[in-house]
Design a protein around this nucleic acid. Structure first.
Lengths: 270, 270
DNA sequence: TTCCAGCCTTGATTTAGATCAAATCCCAGT
DNA sequence: ACTGGGATTTGATCTAAATCAAGGCTGGAA
């Protein structure tokens, strides 16, 4: 297993005056303090869980969270350690994974800007999380999440909806892992990356034909249940078949979306 | 794809006087009517979602649900159809799956007594569900689920917790599908079936060494991302190696749990 | 009881993808 | 610009599991 730098639980954070506990219920203020300004200006708030808390209650949110920036390849969550925090991804990409004792690893998903990481039922995390790129996170303790859940029913509903969505994604990924060929797996992965690029760059005119692939071949292989050689060969084949072009800068251009979709769903026999 | 009998949305149900809408908030009664007796006597209520609704509110639950019994091999949910209902499994086993256009299928999980089926975020079901054995279900419309969620905060929390647990299971299954060998997959599956037997037969002295396997080889193969031949050969090998015994009556006896666990987690090199 | 149709098992052969083995690319740091 | 080390690509070979192909078992219907 690879040794990676670990983000310490007590890492340096932007100073914040008085926010260990949640703002008490009833005592709400619309006044802008430095923290709530951070949330009000947040680029992903309208897309993520925080959207279930109104502007005038944003101080609660701001005081319950801390922003942290982490370099690529930093562990955010270590498999099996006590589950104490929850993270919103503000910028960048985080990978989630599970490992076998001998080091075999399965990446169960990538969390991009607007998504969250770290929900756990049990006392310890059953999965690990590590940054793929430079990542900006909002950290929140489970205790504070509990408080938000108790105080804002909309938050619980929003979280339920988000987890239900993640479960549907996981089921789709099980279909991929169990029943798709290498070519179908890579095509499906690229389609997901196009969707992701579209979500995070809604105004880019090239959003329909661009896939952002910040992760290495090792990560892609561990996500698709393949080896790096097979991933590389398959991408080369797609390039040769003029379905995609360019791998530079971790950015792939799609030349034929319909063909890619047909391949992903097994409609293309080749 | 296999043709299976479909459970019609308007199937015969136990007659019930007046329960299309949820019992209005505030109007609660502890009086026993035939419906609430069904819920009060329910064998799985203490284990499933309904446990978040107290005895004195059980009429609400009883009037929101209908019990249905279905024979083996009946479709409960058809992939892609409008998502309108939610089911609690009272008895028996239901399989959940996703399919590819050419008929390849991945079973994403089995729902046994006490578990639920049919949660969906989108307008249509992204998965199918079919009975494995004779199954007793409690059916509830999504509208009624919405009402329960709005009225009972504990219900939302319970559901969130259950879905989070399912997500963790799904991640474990992704590790299996993407990175385990055939032998490790089968051993992991048997361990899951032992746990399930233990849950549903807590007082059976043989619960530690018994696995209930009501599903066919086709279902096991579609769950593990293998072929029926590989599943059959692998089970034969485990029997030959004296790690399990007996396949009769869909009941497998475990001779060496530690060995099975070592195999499942890749600690046994053979 | 016999028969039949689905299951399940076992054997022989094939193959998709893994593994082993070099190059080559691509920057980040000097 | 130069350099070194990781990331990627490509080629040759191997193998776990798939596919193809019989048989055998079992439990319900006649």
């Amino acid at each position: 297993m690879l040794k990676v730098p670990v983000f310490p639980d007590s890492a340096p954070m932007p100073p914040s005056p008085s926010a260990q506990a949640l703002h008490p219920a009833g005592k709400r203020t619309g006044r802008a303090d430095p923290d709530s300004a951070r949330c009000l200006m947040c680029k992903v708030r309208e897309y993520n869980l925080c959207s279930s808390i109104e502007d005038h209650d944003v101080t609660v949110l701001a005081q319950a969270t801390r922003q942290i920036s982490l370099p690529p390849g930093t562990a955010v969550i270590e498999e099996g350690t006590p589950a104490s925090a929850f993270f919103n991804v503000i910028n960048g990409t985080v990978k989630l994974f599970k490992s076998l004792p001998d080091g075999r690893r399965q990446i169960t998903g990538f969390a991009d800007a607007g998504q969250f990481v770290g929900l756990s039922n049990s006392r310890t995390y059953s999965f690990g999380a590590e940054t793929v790129s430079t990542v900006l996170l909002c950290r929140c303790t489970h205790t504070q999440i509990e408080n938000l859940l108790a105080e804002y029913p909309g938050f619980a509903r929003h979280l339920l909806s988000a987890v239900t969505h993640e479960l549907a994604d996981a089921q789709e990924q099980m279909l991929l892992l169990g029943r798709k060929t290498a070519k179908e797996k890579v095509a499906s992965f690229l389609l997901d990356r196009i969707k992701q690029y579209h979500r995070t760059h809604p105004h880019d005119p090239d959003a329909e034909t661009t896939a952002s692939v910040p992760m290495t071949r090792v990560d892609i292989a561990d996500y698709l249940g393949l080896t790096i050689e097979t991933v590389s060969r398959t991408i080369s084949t797609l390039r040769r078949d003029k379905i995609i072009s360019g791998t530079e800068n971790h950015c792939i251009r799609i030349l034929s979306l319909p063909n890619l979709q047909d391949i992903a769903y097994g409609l293309k026999s080749i």
